[in-house]
Amino acid sequence: MTGSSGLRTDARRTAWLLAPALAWMGLFFVLPLMVVFLISFATRSAYGGVEWAFTPANYRDLADPLYLRIYLRSCVMALATTGVCLVLGFPLAYHMARAPARWQGIWLVLVLIPFWTNFLVRTYAWMNLLRADGLLNTALIGAGVMRAPVEILYSDLAVLIGLVYGYLPFMVLPLYAAIERLDRSLLEAARDLYAPGWAVFTRVIVPLTKPGIIAGCLLVFIPSLGAYITPDLLGGARSMMIGNFIQHEYLVVRDWPLGSAASFVLMAIVVAGLWGYQRAGGVRA
């Protein structure tokens, strides 16, 4: 038995274990975020510096239709990416989870390898394929499908392809974990009771794997919304997303207060998304 003094030294020891990491994250994560928050209420000085003030003007400026369109386009793009990843990821995850145990490990590694390959390299790989003189056009023309090359690169479609490619593993892994845990006998029971295939899917599989679906959707939606590299490399002049807008305000226009406000709105959408999904998941579960 440990006395109360023993408990206290244990608590102190635990505090010492946590202190370095908390100090580090407090100094280089929490504090910088607070600085961004403060500056989002400041104004820009003539030479690109920051003039301290306390005004919501930056947030009001963001309501400009020009900026709103960037936010709207980013949300639509992130939702589309999430949808496509879900449609592609579900059959793959289902197949993986139902494979023999030895194959499951191999499938998992196969999904993980592209995921850990440098993101820039993966995006660049698509630039090669989608160019007007790229392999996709060459192959399609060679096969007689098309006569003239179509420039897919530098378009919204290219950004969508790049985002789906980049974040598909984020969808597959939680889906796989959820489906793997699914009790097979429930599916058999549904079929024995003459449920048609579609009903088994919508009334049994989907509700039971909902936590995995929600986790996968969040894991894809969040990074897609703040994507920077993909729209920058694959998108056209009009494909700017929130991430590019923030970078543009900071490094090109040098309007730090507006850039800070923009990044806080991005974070607000992310937090709202997290909260909303948690509630949606909580209601039914």
């Binding site: 946590l18 994250m25 280089f28 994560f29 504090l31 910088p32 975020l33 600085v35 961004v36 500056i39 969040l218 969040i222 990074p223 919304l225 703040g226 920077y228 929130i242 991430g243 923030i246 970078q247 900071y250 730090w256 850039g259 800070s260 990044s263 991005l266 974070m267 992310v270 997290l274």
Partner: peptide, 27 residues
């Protein structure tokens, strides 16, 4: 609350983390 604190950097948009660090280092 520690779970949340350690989760936040993982879900935070990377651009925002970059911007926050840049501002902080300049300041």
């Amino acid at each position: 609350w520690l779970d949340g604190a350690f989760l936040l950097p993982l879900v935070m948009p990377e651009v925002m983390m970059g911007v926050a660090l840049l501002l902080f280092f300049v300041l």
